[in-house]
């Protein structure tokens, strides 16, 4: 059987797909930003000297890292409103689920970076009378930050891929737009292949960019 390709439905509706891509990036950007904040809070919580902070932070991190994101999408969209009385838009629910989940992963990157700073640095800070918070802010985080960048970027790419699950909440990101178009035009092959290429292009270029950044960091560290 010879398949006859027909990309016209794709070109005619390319604006719709672009709109979907923009929404994908919007959701990604928002969730990465919020996720980094949540991640830093969770990491500092996990490393805090008191158990009242470290145990809940650890629990949240481990729970979100070991459960499927799709469950959280549904939980925030269908479950949370029952608990709080506030119903979330698909965007808000997706952003909440993505931010907390990637926050849990970011937290482990932050923690890894912080722990990797050698003991002598902590001792030197304490020796001149710095408190825990001062030590973190002035001595540890600036040093840890550089080696966190590559894993943070990698985690962010994972997040971009995960945003596609927002389609299940009918948020109009790229996959959702494609599903709507596919049912309208009966051209699933062309449309789904096109969005695969779109995702690939964005993510592949981003990972090439990341390699360049990594290269530069390595060079600077060698100097």
């Amino acid at each position: 059987m010879q398949y006859v390709w027909d990309f016209r439905p794709v070109w005619l509706n390319f604006g719709v797909l672009l709109e979907g891509l923009v929404n994908t990036l919007k959701l990604s950007g928002f969730s990465i930003g919020l996720g980094l904040v949540i991640g830093l809070v969770l990491a500092l919580g996990r490393l805090a000297p008191t158990r009242f902070l470290s145990i809940p932070a650890t629990a949240i991190i481990e729970f979100y890292r070991n459960t499927p994101p799709l469950v959280h999408f549904f939980w925030y969209f269908y479950g949370l409103p029952i608990l709080t009385g506030i119903s979330l838009t698909p965007f808000a629910a997706a952003a909440a689920a993505l931010s907390v989940q990637s926050g849990a992963f970011f937290a482990e990157v932050f923690r890894g970076g912080i722990v990797s700073v050698e003991r002598g640095q902590w001792e030197a800070g304490r020796a001149i009378g710095m408190g825990h918070a001062q030590l973190m802010r002035r001595i540890i985080l600036p040093q840890a930050f550089r080696r966190m960048i590559p894993p943070l970027m990698e985690r962010s790419f994972e997040l971009v891929k995960t945003t596609s699950l927002a389609a299940t909440l009918t948020y109009g990101e790229l996959v959702y737009k494609a599903m709507v178009l596919a049912t309208q035009t009966y051209r699933p092959m062309e449309i789904y292949s096109t969005i695969a290429v779109m995702f690939f292009t964005v993510l592949f270029l981003a990972s090439l960019g990341m390699r360049a950044v990594e290269h530069r960091l390595a060079r600077r560290a060698a100097r």
Partner: peptide, 14 residues
């Protein structure tokens, strides 16, 4: 570099 959701949809629908 593509979401797994897109891959599953592709194999099932495309």
């Amino acid at each position: 570099n593509t979401p797994v959701l897109v891959q599953l949809i592709w194999f099932y629908y495309a």
